[in-house]
Design a protein around this nucleic acid. Structure first.
Lengths: 222, 222
DNA sequence: CAATTATTCAAGGGATCTATTGAATTAATG
DNA sequence: CATTAATTCAATAGATCCCTTGAATAATTG
């Protein structure tokens, strides 16, 4: 009977994919890649890993089909192989948050205390942008903003926020977002804005989650 | 700055969950558990693993919150901790099938050749059952059927199928299902039925996927 | 063509994972 | 209360994973 072998082989393949996700550094790399395409050394910089180490992790991700790369000049650019990878990461995040007490506590301690308000659902934000009611604020680094952002969003990286407060219309509510549901940038931005008396909330999820819902994404790259 | 530590800790936790999924045997155990609650030795039997080994794998799954257990008599029964775990497994499956050439080939060689017809979507099956147009056939072992099955489905394990052909109304189309999208039982059942001249198709997905769509599940256990 | 930049390759030690074995718990049974 | 059944625990060897280091490969630049 080859059916036993088939099942075994199939599950082994699924396990390969899970194994690629079974390392914190690789998950972090994937979150960066979910913002857009990036070169190896750019990823090494933002993740704080050695270049060689980054390269090896990326190759593992590539061998399991989670990312693909292209060579341009003497740089190699990696990106997610599809939005289904973002969906998988979202599933993983959700299960971890729901069933691991450690995660729940971490999230509560570091994030929830900073923002007791409910985040704005993506669909609702879209409506309110159409009606001109809110300013959408992207607090990620400019490279990530350039690679893709919410339509009409303005980009003020967190570090610049205090200096550029006047770029915001004080009569409008601000909705801030960054890389994903657990990215601290948007939490910090919202809390800073509120201290300055600006009405601010967080988007529910970051750019990858917005994309996954099928909403339009603007790109500055020409 | 504690934000770096927070991110690191968080991704490490996500990685723990992925690590629990990074072994073929554990994935197989999870697929069995997605059918319903089962004891350790029942799982050891169907998976072909040692009892001690099965127990250790189950404990790893438990430590990452993917399964929970309850003690009854001197048996311990494990089950999935939630349907989000089924959803995560589905995501993993989908990504693997879409991006790993090996999986695509495996599935094609072992399954697609057996059933060139498109499977029936769950929603469509529900309609046709209401109209009394189809016989729903559950080809899993009786324990799994007892733990939960599609409303009105009859249970004929694959091995019994030839003997019990007369239990099927020959004028009706049969829709067969089993444990999931890659479970061979339903594929084999459909092909056997067609050889006997019975009009047969497969359900798209198994019981866990049916549940995930929010459709009703019947249970024989009293 | 030599020098530089970005990435990959190769080898190593230390840690972690897996399956096996046999003993230890725990709860039911006679 | 001794016995049995189901599960877990503990210890072990072999495999795999992770990071570091230093060299090798390509593509670009002067």
């Amino acid at each position: 009977m080859s059916t036993g072998n088939f099942k075994h082989d199939l599950f082994s393949q699924f396990a390969r994919v899970a194994k690629a996700l079974s390392n914190g550094h690789r998950l972090e790399l994937l979150e960066f890649l979910a913002q857009g395409e990036r070169s190896v050394d750019a990823l090494a910089q933002v993740s704080g890993l050695t270049v060689a180490n980054t390269s090896q992790h990326l190759q593992q991700l590539r061998q399991t089909g989670l990312v693909i790369n292209r060579k341009a000049g003497h740089k190699v650019y990696y990106r997610l192989s599809g939005m289904d990878v973002s969906a998988l990461l979202g599933s993983l995040r959700e299960v971890a948050e729901r069933h691991l007490a450690d995660v729940d506590r971490l999230v509560y301690d570091y994030l929830k205390v900073k923002d007791s308000l409910e985040p704005v659902p993506a669909a609702q934000l879209l409506e309110r942008v159409r009606d001109g009611l809110v300013t959408v604020l992207d607090v990620r680094p400019p490279e990530e903003y350039a690679a893709g952002h919410l339509p009409g969003a303005i980009n003020i990286p967190l570090a610049e926020l205090e200096k550029q407060l006047d770029a915001l219309d004080p009569s409008q509510e601000v909705v801030a977002y960054c890389r994903g549901p657990h990215c601290v940038l948007a939490f910090d931005a919202v809390s800073k804005l509120r201290e300055r008396g600006v009405k601010a909330r967080r988007l529910d999820g970051g750019l990858p989650e917005w994309r996954l819902e099928g909403f339009p994404v603007e790109s500055s790259s020409t």
